[in-house]
Design a protein around this nucleic acid. Structure first.
Lengths: 186, 186
DNA sequence: TTATTCATGTAATTTGTTACATGATTCT
DNA sequence: AGAATCATGTAACAAATTACATGAATAA
């Protein structure tokens, strides 16, 4: 059976050097959490599984009197990681509750529609700001590609904010209603 | 405990009229599958659960000698659905394996980078075409908002194709390498 | 007549989160 | 002294998919 994406992310984190489970969690939170996340409840069992499969080896260390289990990629683990890197990636999956609600927007009253969209735009702006706050970290810790995906994220959220902004304008111009039979926009 | 998004989608599908589980699956596949999907293994148990909770009622019918169980929203079910519609939607979650791979792109050889991005763009174009094929269905079966989310999806994939297209150009201009220390793009 | 679509449903498995338990160290 | 962070790990639960089982009706 092939590895899951999270299992491969963990191999990927170790490809930059030995890390503890705690450090891996940090890296994921700071760089990929908004398009792929992992909790301790995933990370530690996966590290154990990787060790059982000979993809990583671990060593107990004491760092400033602090117990740590440091994991390291084995040659076999690196091969598995490399193979995965060359495979065609799975298609993106999006879970977007706002889009679901949009499906049933006809049931809302005009004022409610406007309010929902306004609130959603606020949410998007807030999230984009959070992404922008990661930037200094990515600039210091990450390489070119880590910064690149941050750029991608910011562009994605700009797109969403813009799209919903246009939709909001349309709603407002029609007092929360939409022109019946209007064609979709270019 | 509150309903999950999928549980609410099912209520939403029934808000347009009585439907069978099979029909609900069809609707979801044709309109929301690319941002929220559900399999029979989810739908049938959820319908049973909704009935236990008094949110839907069901009736066994025979349609052209064909057994069908038709579900209908109860007033209580409609209230629960309406309440959910007015709540602030959960933030979007994205699972984007290509973005994960991008994190570790430094490990690939220049030629491999170009190939991966090219293949990914092809995938995106294919998926966008699939979305466009839904359009006739949405135009005939769906209302304004169903068409709107299709429009959103097409715009989203256009954005992705464009973004990766720019990235590919950059890679090609540097024979698969990227300028060290180059700043992220505007 | 045979493949496809219609139609419902369950069981096993996968994947992952949340909450908990535990305890050391460091910052204020 | 106390709060926050470092650090590891498990158990219970949640959500959902996949695969299977079943069978009727219809289109090729």
């Amino acid at each position: 059976m092939s590895n899951t994406t999270v299992e491969n992310i963990i191999l990927g984190c170790l490809s930059f050097g030995p890390r503890s489970g705690y450090e891996i969690k940090k890296i994921i939170s700071m760089s990929s959490s908004w398009f792929y996340n992992a909790s301790y409840g995933s990370i530690y069992p996966i590290l154990k599984k990787h060790e059982d499969n000979g993809l990583v080896s671990s060593e107990e260390t004491v760092d400033n009197g602090r117990y740590k289990r440091i994991y390291q990629l084995t040659p076999k683990g690196y091969k598995v990681f490399e193979k995965w890197m060359l495979e065609s990636p799975k298609l993106m999956t999006v879970k977007y509750e706002m889009a679901v609600k949009l499906m049933f927007f006809a049931h809302l009253k005009p004022g409610q529609r406007i309010k929902q969209v306004e609130q959603h735009i606020e949410q998007l702006i807030l999230f984009k700001q959070e992404l922008e706050e990661i930037e200094p970290y990515a600039a210091s810790e990450g390489d070119f590609y880590q910064r690149l995906i941050l750029d991608w994220g910011e562009n994605l959220y700009s797109f969403l904010i813009e799209w919903f902004g246009k939709f909001l304008d349309e709603l407002k111009n029609n007092s929360g209603d939409v022109p019946i039979n209007s064609k979709t926009r270019e």
